[in-house]
Design a protein around this nucleic acid. Sequence first.
DNA 1: CGTGTTGTTCAGTT
DNA 2: TAACTGAACAACAC
Length: 257
Amino acid sequence: MPELPDVENYRRLLAAHLIGSVLLRIDVLDASVLRNTTPRHMEKMVERTFRHVDRRGKWLVAFSDGPALVLHFGMTGSLLVTPCGASRDRYDRVVLVGEHEEVRYRDPRKLGGVWLAEGASAVDDVIGPQGPDGRTVSRRELALRLGDRRGGIKPVLMDQRVIAGLGNMLSDEVLWRACVDPTRSASALDDHAVERLHRSLRDVLRRSVRAGRIPRTSSWLSSQRDEDQPVCPRCHQRLERRTIAGRTSLSCPICQR
DNA sequence: CGTGTTGTTCAGTT
DNA sequence: TAACTGAACAACAC
């Protein structure tokens, strides 16, 4: 379920387990997740040492003393660390083998992928235009960027060119906490609504990053995501489920007017 | 055999 | 131009 908090967690995983150690081997178990490279080309990473791991929105970039490894997780991708030689999962697609541990890129549905980039501008080319990170964007910049857009606030929040890192669930959570209707026009929000959105964005991301994912505890909208009869954790009225921008949206018709 | 799913991209349309 | 819609990608659960 990779949105910004999950990817930030993967970044920390890589930083803790990969940085400073030499990559002994790369096992490409399914070459179809390689997007701009080949198993053979990936061999360039072997015997390289990772120096730094960067997260840009939902993208992860592992810089080494050679090429950079660029990862995206799609809807079902994940990263995990195991001891070397532990039994493999059928959805492990690429395994980075270090001296003592393996880092596995796992993705059942393969909507994510792995890229190789030589140089900073190659990294930018892979990732494409991205707005400021949702975790650090200032209220002023948020206001400016929302004011520029003509669409509805929810699709705008999910647009990575506007703010990087938010997906469907986080957007719902942020809008619910800020008491903003997802169908309202982004540019029509007044200063007070933008301020609520900004505070909500920061709170939701800070807490989610701390938890490593969006919490599903009872005070979060996401706790109701899979319920047949979802109820607002704040006012206890029935939540509304509808399709916005092609995705299932959950909101409270009472709180988010 | 339908439907739905946390992301992104593209073609076609408004 | 900007923005919207639906389909596609792949795999599985129900």
